[in-house]
Amino acid sequence: MKKSIIFFVLATVATVCFAYAQTVVTTGTTKTITLPPEKVDLKPGQGMDKAATYCVICHSAEYITMQPKGTKAQWTGSVNKMIKVYGAPISEDDAKVIAGYLAANYGTGQ
């Protein structure tokens, strides 16, 4: 009984490893790739939960973390662009919280 559980666990781990290694599979006329999982590592701070919820609906968090330090006005502009241009479903209040979070954690301090 115990042995079979260990075997099952090992088999599962092996399958997962194999599946991950096989990032490109061609079956008949179909080619399929498996993308690596994304990492979300926003700085902790007031409003992070809202940024982590809304911003990553459409893109990974690196779209924030790779940017140069922005002013409050730049980050507010960025959040507004996401709402007005791309239709991000963010309320006015949440938009302020997110812009504040971004300016405080990824900002120039201005």
């Binding site: 990032t23 790739i33 993308l35 990974s60 690196e62 779209y63």
Partner: peptide, 12 residues
């Protein structure tokens, strides 16, 4: 997939 180690700006 099908790529060597590249500099990751963004994942998704």
């Amino acid at each position: 997939p099908e790529k060597t180690d590249l500099i990751r700006l963004t994942s998704r």
